[in-house]
């Protein structure tokens, strides 16, 4: 079989999407547990790499690990029963030997989520427990990598992210894999249409009533309440909570003009492509006028 990659830059709605898909597939009367979501990041952890490939990732160089990852993705695709969903934050890059990190043979399709980078930075800074400025620098860094940076104690393989816009372009402009792209803001504004299109793209049986219930069961306040009650096992420390605000536009009060400017300068064309640029420029013009 082959895999539907649930791909996104971090903090772009991936877990919310997984919660909706889980509730859609599990026809239970009550919401599914947030600690049993489908689409776990099986391709990004050292355990699956070691077990499937028979090689010890902890004795391998980042280049060697990267070179072998397409094989892991193919092995996972063969092993997973349909419908196979796997969350990935990796950019859609090539290995040092020139192979596609996400091979066509292992791929049924790509469900890509994109979110306004001005909101991503606010949410990401919160999760990483670091300043907005450091997070802006990270999102603008062309070789940004998650995990595997510390020399020990990471259950994750190194995850190549690229810059925020590099990430978006790597998935949307690769031309090999079928991609369905959705804006986080559209999931919020019109969940039935946006999630519905994803359900159809993934080839799942269509049932409007089931989708409405799944969206309700995965509503943000419910996810947050579950996290408060039982904890979310996938939350990466040191952030205090995973499900935080779940809204669009909080950047307007959280960011300073120079931070907005730094992201616009680095990602302007991709922001424009998804309709994020106009608001950012209006904000900057307004701030400029207010400051004048």
């Amino acid at each position: 079989m082959s895999i539907f990659w649930l791909a996104s830059y971090p903090k772009s709605g991936n877990t919310w999407l997984r919660a909706v898909l889980t509730n859609y597939l599990h026809e239970a009367g009550e919401p599914a547990s947030i600690n049993a979501l489908i689409g776990w990041c099986a391709a990004s952890v050292r355990f699956t790499f070691d077990e499937f490939l028979g090689l010890p990732s902890s004795d391998m160089t980042p280049e060697e690990i990267m070179r072998h990852r397409p094989l892991l993705h193919e092995a996972l695709a063969e092993a997973m029963p349909p419908p196979a969903f796997v969350k990935v934050h990796e950019a859609c890059v090539h290995t040092p030997s020139g192979a596609a990190l996400f091979p066509k043979a292992a791929t049924a399709g790509v469900i890509y989520l994109v979110r306004n980078p001005l909101d991503v930075v606010v949410s990401y800074a919160h999760q990483m427990h670091q300043t907005i400025d450091d997070t802006v620098t990270f999102m603008n860094h062309s070789t940004a990598t998650l995990g595997g940076a510390r020399p020990s104690l990471s259950t994750f393989l190194p995850i190549p992210l690229l810059t925020w816009s590099g990430h978006v372009s790597s998935w949307l402009d690769q031309g090999e894999l079928p991609v369905h792209v959705t804006r986080y803001e559209d999931l919020l504004a019109n969940p039935r249409a946006a999630f519905g299109a994803i359900v159809r793209f993934a080839g799942l049986d269509w049932d409007g009533a089931r989708l409405a219930r799944a969206i309700d069961h995965a509503a943000f306040p419910r996810l947050r309440a579950q996290e408060e009650e039982i904890g979310f096992e996938e939350k990466q420390p040191p952030s205090p909570s995973f499900f935080r605000a779940g809204v669009a536009g909080s950047w307007r009060t959280a960011l300073r003009p120079r931070q907005v400017r730094a992201l616009v300068d680095a990602h302007g064309p991709v922001m424009e492509r998804f309709g994020y640029l106009r608001d950012a420029e209006a904000f900057l013009a307004g701030e400029g006028a207010a400051g004048a």
Partner: peptide, 18 residues
């Protein structure tokens, strides 16, 4: 039989690239 290793009772073969 995987792309890197294969096994059967009594025999195990693995290729570590390079």
């Amino acid at each position: 039989k995987t792309r890197l290793w294969e096994g059967t009772p009594g025999a195990f073969l693995i290729n570590v690239d390079g």
